[in-house]
Amino acid sequence: MRHFVFALLLLLSPPLLAAERLDATPRIAVMSAFAPEWQLLKSATTEQKSHSVNGIDFVTGRLAGRNVVLFLSGISMVNATMSTQIALDRFDVTGIVFSGIAGGVDPALNVGDVVVANQWSQYLEATFARDLGNGKWSVPPWQTATLPNYGMIFPGPVEVRRAGSATPEKRMWFEVDADMLKAAGRMGDVALQDCVAPGRCLGRKPRMIVGGNGVSGQAFVDNAAFREYVFATFKAQLLDMESAAVAMVAYANGTPFIAFRSLSDLAGGEHGGNEMATFMGLASANAALVVQRFLQAWTPPR
């Protein structure tokens, strides 16, 4: 009888409806984490129309000759995950492009450089291991350490479900879209900003680097030792607080994704204090400039 009642309730329940599309035009989603990044791109966008979902402002329009929807991811992994999925549910998204700042990890890179990583991982998708003393740690017996640890932190893969797959899979890395990466590689030299004010310039001209690894996590990193660990363990060029989350959502939905991150600081590698407050504007402008050039170079799949 209980099973019959449950089945009857299912039959009488209204069908689950997809989220209402706010716009029918196929668009490239252009995301930023910080307001300064968002304002730069928004100021260059024409034919603007605003929408709001769960307190997130989405602006549709034309940017660099493409139909786009602009929005802020919010800072950190959970915010980026939520806002990305809302955009995919409410708009016809043909690809996701992230424009933002980051902390440099690779010692060969400098503030102002723009990195276009070819894959992203999460350095805090991890087990905090049991302390055995004398510098020894123990992960639970059902887990296997796949990468070198940083003290008690043992990073590992994340489980993800994907459209069209009946079973979840574990992944350490999420690759950006191959065609997007090729388009970025065809862009050639971009004249990036190198001064925050007259007489206050970087020691050398910033450059764009296509390829390499990026990592993301919930922590703002300003620690030289951890920076060195991330570079050695993940062979990473940079770290931030959103890109890997967006890459994972894009993978789960089968949506092309790429991120352009300009270095605002060196994640603890500076000789003095952290320089993000000084160079955030310059880095934001460089990322936004490269994204607009990319939009001209890449043709969405539909």
Rank of each mutant, 00 (worst) to 15 (best):
A166E: 09
L295F: 09
Q122S: 12
C195A: 00
L12W: 09
S43Q: 13
D177W: 07
L22Q: 01
T46N: 07
F6L: 08
M82V: 09
L17R: 12
F98N: 10
A18D: 09
W137G: 06
L63M: 07
L88A: 07
D131I: 03
W173E: 06
S52P: 05
D23N: 09
I28W: 00
A285C: 01
I258M: 12
A18C: 08
S264H: 10
A225G: 10
A283G: 07
D222I: 06
P141A: 11
R261E: 05
I28N: 02
F231P: 03
Q237C: 15
R90L: 03
R261T: 05
I86K: 01
D57M: 01
Q119K: 14
D89E: 10
A178T: 07
E175L: 14
T146I: 12
N286A: 13
A244T: 02
E169G: 13
F154G: 03
A129I: 07
E125V: 10
A197L: 05
F220Q: 04
R207K: 15
V116Y: 07
G55T: 13
R90C: 02
G164V: 05
F279G: 02
H3I: 13
D189A: 11
S262Q: 05
A117R: 01
K235T: 06
A35R: 10
F279S: 00
G188Y: 04
A166R: 06
L239Y: 09
V93I: 08
C201E: 11
V116S: 06
V93F: 01
L147Y: 00
